[in-house]
């Protein structure tokens, strides 16, 4: 055996079965129930938008990876562009023209992800960047709630216009107006339960975000359940604030990030432009992540108190 080459590698010599594509597949799987809900409530239009977004994201990703001269197949294999596509679609109204949806995907992946260096280096959540771009560029398209001749305005807008509070049951189970992924809180939560079980998302982020909204609403004498289940907050709490790449790594930093975003939601909803709370709260807090991680190091094992 002496002439046989033995492999030299650094420890550890065994690794867990989790991989980046495995994580992304888990997220996609968790999004499936909510995709069914979108298809159920909005029919074929919803599926068209979802597929368009996925396609736009994947193709854009492939072009960027190719331009960087990296192995396209290997890098697309991580599945993150598919996740971005689905999430972007979930933030769009069912009336969104397909070209607009595609543009959102192209911009999200390009400006939200690849100008920063691609997966792992982006500061902002790409899906939310895409959505924010569309909101700014095509405000009327993004608030067109007349679908199949019926108005499907989001409960928050409905409330803003008429002070009408959608029934809790509708908020929770679905059959309410809104964006594709906003309709059925219970199916989003189902996906969330799966992600928690798989250890893919951090409960601290979801709880810190949603919990802050509830507490803040209670303090201000608003209806906490309404605030929790409307405006895509559940979608945001399960799938957006928990995006690993754009949330902090440190534990303390994660709490501050999630609670900060929760506060921003309410500030925006109550004193600002009501419907955009989730979108902007997360994008704004994304920007603070490098600072939070740098200046809020965790207390380590055996450390008594901070100097």
């Amino acid at each position: 055996m002496e002439d046989k080459k033995l492999l030299i590698t650094p420890a550890p010599h065994i690794r867990s079965g989790d991989t980046v594509p495995g994580v992304m597949e888990g997220v996609i799987f968790a999004l499936v129930p909510a995709m069914f809900a979108a298809a159920y409530f909005f029919g074929f239009a919803a599926l068209q938008i979802i597929l368009t977004c996925i396609l736009a994201c994947v193709v854009t990703e492939a072009l960027w990876v190719y331009a960087r001269k990296k192995d396209v197949r290997a890098y697309l294999g991580d599945g993150s562009a598919v996740v971005t596509g689905i999430l972007l679609a979930f933030t769009l109204p069912p009336t969104t023209p397909l070209w607009t949806a595609a543009l959102g995907g192209i911009i999200g992946i390009s400006l939200g992800k690849h100008i920063f260096g691609g997966l792992g280096y982006n500061v902002f959540n790409p899906a939310l960047v895409g959505r924010a771009f569309l909101t700014v560029s095509f405000p009327s398209l993004m608030t067109n709630w007349v679908f199949d001749g019926v108005t499907v305005a989001t409960p928050l807008e409905h409330y803003a216009a008429t002070e009408y509070i959608t029934s809790y049951w509708d908020l929770f189970v679905g059959s309410i107006g809104g964006c594709l992924g906003e309709t059925s809180a219970i199916l989003i939560l189902l996906g969330g339960a799966y992600l928690l079980y798989r250890g893919i998302i951090d409960w601290r982020l979801a709880l810190g975000y949603a919990g802050t909204v509830v507490i803040f609403a209670l303090l201000l004498g608003r209806d906490p359940i309404f605030h929790l289940f409307s405006g895509g907050l559940i979608l945001g709490a399960i799938f957006m604030i928990t995006d690993p790449v754009t949330s902090p790594i440190g534990r303390k930093a994660r709490w501050v990030y999630a609670i900060g975003a929760g506060l921003l939601v309410m500030v925006i909803r109550i004193w600002g432009a009501a419907p955009g709370g989730v979108l902007y709260s997360i994008l704004l807090m994304n920007a603070t992540v490098p600072l939070l991680d740098r200046y809020l190091p965790d207390r380590i094992f055996g450390e008594v108190s901070k100097k």
Binding site: T19, G118, Y121, P244, I249, F301
Partner: peptide, 26 residues
């Protein structure tokens, strides 16, 4: 077969390394 380490991906900042470090390091 077991000797080769699996392929590396970009860090997705999932913080699992933080959440599993017994010394609470980053």
């Amino acid at each position: 077969e077991e000797a080769h380490l699996p392929r590396e991906w970009e860090c997705i900042r999932c913080a699992r390394c933080v959440d599993n470090c017994p010394m609470f390091l980053n």
